[in-house]
Amino acid sequence: MMLLAIEQGNTNTLFAIHDGAEWIAQWRAATDSRRTADEYAVWLSQLMDLKGMRFDALTGCIISSVVPQSIFNLRNLSRRYLRVEPLVIGDNVSIGPQPRILKPSEAGADRLVNAVGAHMRYPGDLIVIDSGTATTFDVVAADGAFEGGIIAPGINLSLQALHEAAAMLPRIAIQKPQTIIGKDTVSNMQSGVFWGYIALIEGLVARIKTEWARPMTVIGTGGVASLFEGATDSIDHFDSDLTIRGLLEIWRRNTHLTAE
């Protein structure tokens, strides 16, 4: 088996290849809903060539996207260049227990995949914090079902909003400030955003645990999750491979292959 897993968020799109035993390649591209299947193919084929791989070596494809406009082109990439019909999260693909929310069809593909990836590795009831364009807090029951959660603006979105809405506030990079109390505009903004998000995480995790009323393990993942490592005790594990692990497991479940 040579599987191409595509995980598309609002900001970045991850392309990863699994050879049946391990992930052997991963590449990221900026998400652009206007990008065609042919453009994806040119970009991806060149990167694969650098590793001595060709499209005809790929025998499967699974796609998770939160950008509906892009799914058509990603599907065509698989059909036209890999010559395989892709599995697309949301297209009657089995993911395990049905989401226990009011409108299961509204559950984001990324959140469902994360629930599978988290349940595979961590026992019991879980909170998955995914830090990307949005910061999501997903509750995953001990049987692997997605139980709902919280959506908040992502840290980059907050920085962008500060810069665009306030004429005197510059565009800054995310980093952990040396002190809580800032001594200039940049350190004031960095402290507000960084420690503000730590407070958001700690406060919401505490409230979720109180409402759930059972022990829960907290996993952090996503593009900027590593920024918070060591800054809070509210996150038990940081797991950058959560989503692609979930995609691999869903692929196996739907193609009747034995999971690891």
Rank of each mutant, 00 (worst) to 15 (best):
M2F: 15
A5V: 05
A5T: 08
A5G: 14
I6S: 06
N12F: 08
N12R: 15
L14F: 01
H18I: 06
H18F: 12
H18T: 04
G20T: 14
A21E: 15
A29K: 05
T31M: 04
T31W: 06
R35F: 00
A37Y: 01
Y40N: 14
A41H: 11
A41M: 03
W43H: 12
S45D: 12
Q46E: 15
M48C: 08
M48N: 09
K51C: 01
G52I: 02
R54P: 00
L58C: 13
T59W: 00
I62P: 03
I63Q: 10
P68F: 07
P68G: 07
Q69K: 10
F72Y: 11
R75M: 03
R75P: 00
N76V: 04
L77Y: 13
R79D: 08
R80D: 12
L82D: 13
R83N: 10
V84Q: 10
L87F: 06
L87W: 07
V88F: 01
I89D: 05
S94D: 13
G96N: 08
G96S: 13
P99D: 08
P99S: 07
L102F: 09
K103E: 12
P104L: 04
A107I: 08
L112W: 01
A115H: 02
V116W: 11
G117Q: 08
A118W: 09
Y122E: 04
P123C: 11
P123W: 04
G124N: 09
D125K: 15
L126Q: 13
T133N: 09
F137W: 02
F137E: 00
V140G: 02
V140D: 00
D143E: 12
F146T: 04
I151Q: 08
I151E: 06
I155M: 11
I155K: 01
N156A: 14
L157Q: 11
L159C: 10
L159P: 03
L162A: 12
A165W: 00
A165D: 09
P170Y: 10
R171V: 09
I172Q: 03
I172L: 09
Q175I: 00
Q178L: 07
T179R: 08
I180S: 11
I180N: 00
T185D: 05
T185N: 07
S187C: 11
N188T: 14
S191N: 01
G192H: 02
V193D: 07
W195C: 04
G196Q: 07
G196V: 14
E202R: 15
E202I: 15
V205T: 10
R207G: 05
I208D: 00
I208E: 00
K209L: 03
A213S: 14
P215V: 12
M216R: 03
G220M: 05
T221D: 01
T221M: 04
T221E: 00
V224R: 08
A225T: 13
A225L: 03
S226G: 14
T232Y: 06
D236S: 12
H237C: 01
H237Q: 07
F238C: 04
S240R: 13
L242I: 14
R245S: 14
L248P: 02
I250D: 10
W251A: 05
N254F: 10
L257V: 06
T258E: 15
